[in-house]
């Protein structure tokens, strides 16, 4: 695998019983880029993310993450990865701070306890660290999930709809946070979202999945060279072709 790729899948298939959810998917995400993964509901985005994070095993095909095979080097890869799959899940009776402490302990990074306040501040949860998570709104939980995904200093973030439940200010803050992570720490971010305007603003490359097939992977920079380019129209036209 070329070293500049953070994620590379080859001929990836995933079936549940007789239902094939992913078909011959080849995904390539460069190191240090923000990659937007698009698809309608049920297209296979979450299944792809679960395969990339080792939650599912592929029916066929290979997955290379940060130069290693996720099926054989799961623990080694997970140390360097932060993820948010589907809805954010926490130990609700505990405070946000305690949740992050537990996460860091599982990650073997107890020396990062001192970074908790700083990280909560970065995601807009300053002063809310002692509050039980059960009292958090959906937006606050989403912010905390992002904090948890990044607090152990991963080199790769895989985030399934991280903007879900965030208000416009929150979306703006997270967007800036993603940019700073990439610029300052060369973190690779793969995320999915239905908010196409956000994807357009933040992603450098987009991948579109339709009916379990990756129908397109393209640089947004190249697409934007066309002054009449509109991501929504492009997305609909590509997914229609994919169907």
């Amino acid at each position: 695998m070329p070293s500049e790729l953070a994620i590379q899948t080859h001929g990836l298939y995933k079936s549940f019983g007789t239902k094939e959810v992913l078909h011959n998917c080849s995904l390539s995400v460069k190191q240090g880029e923000i990659y937007g993964f698009l698809g309608v509901n049920g297209a296979g985005k979450t299944t792809m993310f679960k395969l990339l994070t080792g939650l599912l095993t592929p029916t066929a095909g290979t997955i290379q993450i940060l130069g290693e095979d996720i099926t054989t080097q799961r623990e080694s890869i997970l140390k360097r990865m932060g993820s948010l799959i589907e809805v954010p899940v926490f130990y609700e009776h505990l405070s946000a701070r305690k949740n992050l402490e537990i996460h860091l302990s599982y990650m073997g990074m107890e020396n990062n306890f001192s970074k908790i306040d700083e990280t909560l501040d970065k995601v807009g949860l300053k002063g809310a660290g002692t509050q039980p998570v059960s009292e958090y709104s959906l937006g606050m939980k989403q912010r905390l999930a992002i904090a948890r995904a990044m607090i152990h200093k991963p080199t790769l973030l895989i985030l399934d709809e991280p903007m879900n439940g965030l208000d416009p200010v929150g979306i703006h803050e997270i967007r800036e946070l993603f940019r700073s992570l990439v610029q300052e720490f060369h973190v690779t971010i793969l995320f999915s979202s239905h908010i196409l305007s956000e994807v357009e603003q933040i992603a450098e490359t987009i991948g579109i999945i339709s009916n379990g097939r990756i129908v397109n992977q393209i640089s947004l920079h190249d697409l934007k060279k066309d002054p009449s380019f509109n991501l929504e129209e492009y997305f609909i036209s590509v997914t229609d072709r994919g169907c």
């Binding site: 994070t53 080792g54 939650l55 799961r74 623990e75 080694s76 890869i77 997970l78 140390k79 993820s83 799959i85 589907e86 809805v87 899940v89 926490f90 599982y106 990650m107 073997g108």
Partner: peptide
Amino acid sequence: TSKKIYLLFSYPIK
């Protein structure tokens, strides 16, 4: 058997 399994399985522990 709940969504908490995503969290448990995201840790780099067997």
